[in-house]
Design a protein around this nucleic acid. Structure first.
Lengths: 355, 355
DNA sequence: CTGAAAGCGCTTACAG
DNA sequence: CTGAAAGCGCTTACAG
C-alpha cells in the first residue's frame, strides 16, 4: 500500500536516501537512518517485492518443486515438512523466502518447471523426485538458474545434489541379514523410474555378490509407500520363500506385520523385516522394527546451504558442484533374526499350490 | 533472459504491439499476432514476472500458508498434498500459480503472514490451522488482501472460510454410539487452541445433551495426530471406564488397536472406536474402523474457488463472505458395537488401583 | 551525506 | 492497426 515515495515525502527526504537507509547502505547519516527506520516501522512500510525484484534482478526467494501425484514415491507423510523446515532454517538468516511449488501431475513436471524458470519467480530451485532419466536437470543446467536436486539421476553427473545414502542402507541391511544366516533376502523398490530405486537395487545386488549369494529377480518387489503395500507383499514373500525383506518404504512394515499375524507368523522369527526410515508410524511396532534413522531437517539444511552457495557463486560461472550423501544410522530392533528352516518354506509351497 | 524489447526488435515492432499480441488484446492484426506468437515460441520468450506484476499490480499467484511445527495438528500426512491438488485444479485454468508458504514455527505465523502480505508476493492468501482466537484473520481483513481460511475462528465471523463439518461428525458418532447402548462415550480433541477442537467438543456436548447423557470432563482427552497417542490413550480410556471413543485424529486408532490387543481386549467388543477421516493408514485395520470419508481434493477446490471469487470481486469492496462446510459421510466398520458390562470396567478398576 | 535521474521489463492510455 | 511514451515502485551510479 504505502510506497517508498510516500514515505520519503513524509520524511522530507528523497527516495534514494530512504532506500539507502532502509537497506543499510553506507553513506547515510546515522541520525537520518534512524529517522527513516522509525518512520518505516511506524507507518508499516514494506518494500514492494515486484519493484525490488525488477530493480535488483533477484527475487530473494527459492523454489522447491514437489509432486502431488499421490501414487508416486516422492510425496507422502511428514517427510517433506521436515525437509522444508531444514531448508528454511538456512534460508531465513540470509533473507530468502521459501516457496513450495507443487506440481499437479507427474506429466507436467517439465513444463511446470520450464515456466517457473523462464518467468524467474525464484532465484534458485530445489528439485525433488529425481528420475533415472531426468530432463529437468538439463533444463535447469542450460537455463543458468542455480539449483540443487534432492536425489541423483543417471542422465547427468555434473550438478549439485543432496541424496540419502541408499547404498549404505542396502549394504548394511544385507550384511546384517547374511550375518544372521539369511540367503533368501528380498528387497522392495519403488514404482516408477525414480533414480533411488535403481541405486537401492544395484547396491543390494552388489552386497549379495560380496557374500556370494546369487541374485534372484523373484525376490525384487515393487511397492508404494502405503501400509497396504506391505499387507499384499507379505503373501508374495511367503510365496517366494523369502526369509527376509529389506524395505525401501518403511510403512509397508505395518502391513507386513498385520498380514503375518493373520497367517500365524511372527516378524523377526518367521520373516525378518528391515525397514528404511525411522518414521514415527513404525516406531511403535512390536517386535520393534530394525530400521535406519535420519534427520530430515539436516537434509533440508544441506539442500538450503548448497543452493545458497550456488546462488551466491559467480553468476557467470556456476559454482563447483556439491554432492552430499546423507548417511543413515542403524536402529536395531527385534524384527530380524536367524531364519527358520521349515515354517515359511512349507507355507510358501502351500501358497504356491493354492494359487 | 530474453526481454520483450529484444523480441520486438527482432520482429521490427514496438514493445507495445508485441505485448498486446501476446496478451490477446484486441486491436492487433491477426497476421501480426501470429508472427509475434510464433517468434515468442521459437525464441522461448516468457514475460518477466516481476515486471509484469509491477505494471499490472497483480502477481497472478496465491499463497497457501501452512505450519511446519511438527507437534501441531494442522501439519501431517498426505492431507495437505490432496488439498493443494484441489486448489491447483481450479487455479490453473485461471492462470494462477499456487505458492505454498511454509511457516517454520508456530510463533512466527503472524509475523510471517504480515511480511508476505505487506510485500504483496501474492494476490490472495489461503490460511490454515485457524485457532480459536486468530489475529491473522484480522490482519488479513484490514490489509485488504483477498483471503479464505481453511477453518473457522471464534474471534471473527464475517470472512470467507471452508471447513470440515466437525459438528456433523461429532453428532453422528454420538448418535450412533448411543443407539448401540453406550453412555460412557469419550472424545479426543487436538492439542493447542485450534478452533476445530472447540467446535468438535461443543458439538459432542450438545449431542450428549440431546440424549440426556451428562458431560464428564474425565472423558475428554487431548491427542496429537500420531499413532502413539492412541497407544497411550487406550490405557487412559480403560482407566476412565469409557466404553467408546470418538477420535478427532484417526491415526490414534492404530495405537488403540495395538494397546487393546496387548491387554487382551478387542476393538468393537470391549471398546468401541470411531475414527475421523477415512485415511489410508487406517483403512486396513481389523476389525474395520468405523469412520467418515471426505474428499480432500474437494476441500482444496472449494478453497481455490472461494479465493478466486474473492480476488475477482470488486477490489474496493470485498465480495460477500462465502462460508462452506464440507460434509463427511459415514463409512461403517466393525470397530463399534454394543458395550460390554463387565470387562472394561473391571480392568479399569484394577488399573486405577495400580496407578 | 543527500538529491535528481536513469533504469529494471513490462502494460496501457493516448495519438496517429 | 501500430508506435511513442508514461508509469508501476524500487535501486544505484552520478553529481554536488
Amino acid at each position: 500500500m504505502l510506497g517508498i515515495s510516500k514515505l520519503a515525502q513524509e520524511l522530507g527526504l528523497s527516495t534514494g536516501t530512504v532506500s539507502r537507509a532502509l537497506n543499510n547502505m553506507p553513506g547515510v547519516h546515522e541520525k537520518t537512518r534512524q529517522r527513516v527506520l522509525e518512520a518505516a516501522q511506524r507507518l508499516g512500510y514494506e518494500p514492494n517485492q515486484a519493484a525490488r525484484t525488477l530493480a535488483l534482478g533477484q527475487t530473494k526467494s527459492v523454489g522447491f518443486m514437489i509432486d502431488l501425484d499421490p501414487d508416486t514415491a516422492s510425496a507422502g507423510d511428514n517427510f517433506f515438512m521436515g525437509v522444508f523446515d531444514g531448508v528454511q532454517s538456512v534460508l531465513e538468516p540470509e533473507g530468502f523466502d521459501l516457496l513450495v511449488l507443487p506440481c499437479p501431475t507427474r506429466q507436467d513436471r517439465f513444463a511446470h518447471l520450464d515456466r517457473m524458470v523462464a518467468r524467474r519467480v525464484v532465484d534458485g530451485m530445489i528439485l525433488s523426485g529425481t528420475e533415472k532419466f531426468d530432463p529437468r536437470i538439463d533444463l535447469l543446467k542450460s537455463s543458468g538458474m542455480p539449483f540443487v536436486a534432492f536425489g541423483r539421476t543417471a542422465s547427468a553427473d555434473d550438478f549439485s545434489w543432496v541424496d540419502l545414502d541408499f547404498e549404505g542402507v542396502a549394504e548394511s541391511a544385507v550384511d546384517r541379514l547374511v550375518a544372521l544366516g539369511h540367503s533368501r533376502i528380498a528387497i522392495t523398490v519403488p514404482f516408477g523410474d525414480f533414480n533411488f530405486g535403481e541405486v537401492f537395487l544395484s547396491a543390494y545386488r552388489k552386497a549379495l555378490k560380496k557374500h556370494r549369494i546369487g541374485f534372484d529377480s523373484d525376490l525384487v518387489f515393487q511397492t508404494g509407500l502405503g501400509e497396504e503395500d506391505g499387507y499384499l507383499l507379505a503373501d508374495a514373500l511367503v510365496k517366494a520363500r523369502a526369509s527376509a525383506i529389506v524395505l525401501i518404504f518403511e510403512a509397508a512394515a505395518i502391513g507386513i506385520y498385520r498380514r503375518l499375524d493373520e497367517m500365524g507368523l511372527k516378524p523377526g522369527r518367521d520373516l525378518s523385516v528391515i525397514g528404511f526410515r525411522d518414521e514415527v508410524s513404525v516406531r511403535y511396532l512390536k517386535p520393534r522394527l530394525t530400521r535406519y534413522s535420519l534427520s530430515v531437517f539436516d537434509v533440508g539444511a544441506a539442500l538450503g546451504r548448497t543452493l545458497l552457495s550456488q546462488i551466491s557463486a559467480n553468476k557467470a560461472q556456476p559454482g563447483p558442484a556439491s554432492q552430499i550423501s546423507i548417511p543413515l544410522t542403524l536402529v536395531e530392533g527385534q524384527s530380524d533374526g536367524p531364519p527358520v528352516e521349515s515354517a515359511p518354506q512349507e507355507l510358501g509351497r502351500k501358497a504356491r499350490i493354492a494359487t
